[in-house]
Amino acid sequence: MRIAIVGAGGVGGYFGTRLAVAGNDVTFVARGRHLEAIRRDGLEIRSPLGAFRAPANSAVASISELGPVDLVIVAVKLWDTDDVAAQLRPAVDRGARVISLQNGVHKDMILRRHLPHEAVLGGACYISAFIQEPGIITHNGTLQKVVFGDYQQEQTPLARAFLAACHAACHAAGIEAEISSDIERLIWEKFVFLVGLSATTTAIRQPIGAVRTHPRSRVLLRDLMAEVVAVGQASGVQLDEKFADDRLAFCDTLPADMTSSMHNDLEHGNRLELPWLSGGVVELATRMGISVPRNQAVADILAPYELGVPAMD
């Protein structure tokens, strides 16, 4: 397949490199020193599953430099989604389809404001990976899963072709992939967990082990996720009433030192995806007249850090 990866960070860089090694024609859209390193040396993945490298000169600086592609995988930070979606229209008009592996439930809403609905497939990924230094991605653990599907609950030729590409990339214990017949529900299920993990680890400034151990922070974690379940149900998504309890039990299986990308961004003074995580829960709940006090509190606590290190008078 001809695949473009828009955003060559931990998610896009990892999956894009695995797809490239499997023989697909992969082009990364990157910037800055990361772009320079990929152009010079390729993109290296360091993983417990082995080391992999995408070829040199496999990156461009902008979407406008892409040639014809079958699939665009969007993996930029959420605040860049509007800009990226607008730039993707020419590629979509030439026949490309788009899958976002970004966080949250707002991502595809944004994409479909700029692109035909049928061009946007739903997607979610499960991985812990980050840029260690320009040109190098570190993969934590062995989890590396992609789930995607058409919102029309069909299996289009593009979805089947991408599944085959992922299966080829997992020949040596690599990417686990599947097509979902209810991708919207799956994206919301991930959102429930993601909001709980990101909100608690970032607001408390501790990994999940500390959060789940203390009785009061454990209740906070569960309540944050329960509020997301309520908002999802009000949005028409079929989420089980006890799904927050299910995710709390899942949190007990995670490595004690696991944290979240938002916690990592806070620690490094970077901009936060807060408006699309706990802040996004508040926004959706407000539209429907639902009270989400736990997520509101997290959004308020972290608000000064939303754009990075808070300004001081």
Rank of each mutant, 00 (worst) to 15 (best):
M288K: 12
L307Q: 15
I73F: 08
Q206C: 11
L254E: 05
E44Q: 14
A159Q: 01
N24D: 08
S181H: 14
A168G: 12
M262K: 08
A75G: 09
L186M: 13
V298M: 04
L43M: 13
T202E: 03
R94C: 02
L111W: 06
M312C: 00
V195G: 02
Q87T: 02
I110L: 13
M258T: 12
F162W: 13
E154N: 09
T156K: 05
A22V: 03
W276I: 05
Q206D: 14
P48Q: 10
A85E: 06
T17D: 07
G308Q: 06
V219T: 14
R216G: 02
V26L: 03
E133Q: 14
A4Q: 12
G269T: 12
E176F: 10
L307C: 10
Q152L: 12
R212W: 05
C251M: 10
A4C: 13
L272S: 13
Q233R: 15
H114R: 11
S235N: 11
T156F: 03
V292W: 02
D83H: 09
G269Y: 12
M262T: 09
P157K: 04
T27S: 03
A124P: 02
L274A: 02
A177I: 06
R185F: 05
H117N: 09
A177C: 11
Q233Y: 05
K242R: 14
V76R: 08
P68E: 12
A177S: 11
V229L: 07
P134K: 08
A199T: 00
A124N: 04
S198P: 01
V84G: 07
S64M: 04
I110Q: 08
D300E: 14
F243G: 00
R46H: 12
V309R: 13
R112K: 15
F250I: 13
R2W: 06
A96G: 10
P68M: 00
H106S: 14
A256R: 00
L272C: 12
H268N: 14
E306Q: 15
V11N: 08
A54C: 10
V11Y: 08
A210E: 12
L163R: 03
V211K: 07
V29K: 05
E184R: 15
N24C: 05
S260F: 09
P207Y: 01
I179L: 15
F15R: 00
T201H: 10
D182C: 06
T27G: 01
I290N: 00
T201C: 13
V192T: 01
P215N: 07
L277K: 07
L115F: 08
A124I: 13
D41L: 08
